[in-house]
Simulated scan of single mutants.
Amino acid sequence: MLTLCAAILITVQAAPAAWADRENTGGTSKDVDAGREGRTINVRTQVQTTVNGDSRTGKTGNLSSVDGDWTPPACWYEPAFSPKEIEATVKKWRKFKFLGLGDFVGDVFDAYYKDGDPYKDYNLDKQGEGMFWAGAVNPNRKDDPEASACDKLPFWVPDNETPKEPLAVTPKVLAEYAYDELPLPETDITMAPEDETKVNLPTWIWLDKAKFRKVSVTASLPDTNLSATTTAEPVSLKINPGTKDATTYPASGECPIVDGRIGEPWARGKSKKNPPCGVKYLRSSGDGSYKLNATVTWKITWTSTTEAGDRLPDGEFGDDQNVVVKEIQSINR
């Protein structure tokens, strides 16, 4: 086992990345590194993602989970190599002649995939009946420590079977990956007054109704029945005025969505009303400004054609906005 581990380390650090050069079938797949600090062997993921409906051009961002203990998976195992591709890969190592490492690595992998421990003749007699599964890294999380968890050598899985491997790709794993791919619109709030507000003057805040609709992403693995669709639905806007010297509307600072809109646009005749969503600053910002943070909370669900689906942790996405607050000037006569 130590010899095999040493060979893996040499493979990643000293030789061409043969495990990571399988042909990409397209879609939105992204390249990933061959591993973290030489500890793992990973291939380029073949998972493809599609944004459903509105293309949402313009600036977008990604969610942060409200559950600090949960993140989308950093890696998983997915179908990667046919028996012929495993055989060709071992032959490629043998062409690497530096200090005889190619033959050394080739001997180790032949012992594993050819000589019957645990596979014989690369499973060539089972060509078309299954695939060798390999570790693939979530390209959005390739720097996470957990990205090194999928460190097994490619292993055989017959067609239409689910491997007994906790990190094997499933519809739920695809749904969690799609969580990272949701293109959410910037939290670009509208305020009235717009450029500068006054002490003790309620400032109205609202969001463009057209921008904050449901958005969903489908993640699928080609040539399998594995797919999942993850949907984000906006539910509320949280306001943090950037100072304790402020009052929010409502008092909780969380504005719900009502009839598809967050907040209400200001209009003439509303000056003496309190806004359904807004803030009132109680002290001037002096020569500077307050950094108001507006964060939308999104409810996340997923569905699949093969599983019932469920909720995923709510997500948040927000922006900061500088707010200048001046004292109301009065003239005494």
Rank of each mutant, 00 (worst) to 15 (best):
I205P: 02
A178E: 03
I189S: 09
A251E: 15
L207H: 05
K152G: 07
T224I: 06
D107E: 04
D107S: 06
T28P: 04
A251V: 15
P73S: 11
E87I: 01
I257E: 11
D159A: 12
V108P: 01
N52A: 10
D180H: 01
S330I: 15
Q13C: 11
P154C: 09
G130P: 02
V169C: 10
T218N: 04
Y77L: 09
C75Y: 00
P171E: 10
I8T: 12
T297C: 06
P276R: 03
I8C: 11
E264M: 07
R311D: 14
E37W: 06
T170H: 04
L207E: 06
K238Q: 10
S220V: 08
W133Q: 05
S284N: 06
R333M: 12
L292P: 01
T71N: 13
S55W: 05
T301R: 06
D125I: 13
N52H: 03
T295F: 01
A251Q: 14
S65R: 01
V32H: 02
G100Q: 01
N200L: 15
T301I: 03
L99Q: 07
R36V: 15
S285F: 04
V324S: 08
F98T: 14
C75T: 06
T295H: 02
E37T: 10
A14K: 11
N225T: 14
L282K: 12
A267W: 00
T49Y: 08
T231A: 08
G286D: 06
S64T: 10
L182Y: 02
T224P: 03
